[in-house]
Amino acid sequence: MHFGLIAAGCATAALWSLIRFLASLRRDRLVADTPRVRVRSAAQGYVKLVGRAAPAGDAPLSAPLSARTCVWWSYEVSHNERDDSRGEAGWQSIDSGVSIHPFMLDDVDASCMVGPINAEITPTEHDVWYGTSPRPGSTPSKRRIRRKFDSYRYTESLLRVGDQLSVMGELRSRSEIDGGSLAAGASAHSSILRTSIISQPANGEPFLIAALDDVQLLRREKVHAALYFCLGLTSVVLCAWAVEQAVHGAGSQAVPAL
């Protein structure tokens, strides 16, 4: 066995786990320490908003594979070629996509647009089902178990209309007078319209959209941190074992030569 290679692999895994562990701890604190604000009075900058998802236009989006109504979707179609001589070749992605359409987040008394590009989204629905054609002929509720002749796998994630969401990102607002710009001045009966959009932060902070409340978000980050720590520790032990094996192996090979 190539214990040197195993040791190198484990060391890389340990380093990666350590970095992810520290990043998860940082995110845990960020989620816990960022106060929740209301859309109507939110200042510009990195904020945490909580509200219900709503379509940005008159009609909600339609999911590409299942045609279900939603405000955000992502999908992937994978194909598995069966080869009689070599068995299954494994799933190859043949089509995928992620919605970039903005949607609205409605809190108690105001709304905010959410631009989901580059967001880390925890969907409310995640379905995997199978079929025989590149486009599914059935809805996700059926065909969840793969049949022998199913060669296509469909994966679809959705945020549905009305889902309760926590969004952490950078809020930008623009004010304008109903029917004109703010600079043009306001008449007695004109009202000031405030348009807010939350999107990916420019300073590298995480952009999270999750159908989870604060407690669930925190628990998730803590669980991730704990898992990364355990993975790192295991990798270190394996790395040390592989190094010892490599050293002993080299030593035992060297003895006959003496």
Partner: peptide
């Protein structure tokens, strides 16, 4: 093994305190 574990824990603790 003990040495590497201690090193890992020391780096993790230092990173944690910096965090």
């Amino acid at each position: 093994i003990a040495g590497l574990i201690v090193l890992f824990l020391a780096v993790a603790l230092s990173g944690y305190l910096i965090g």
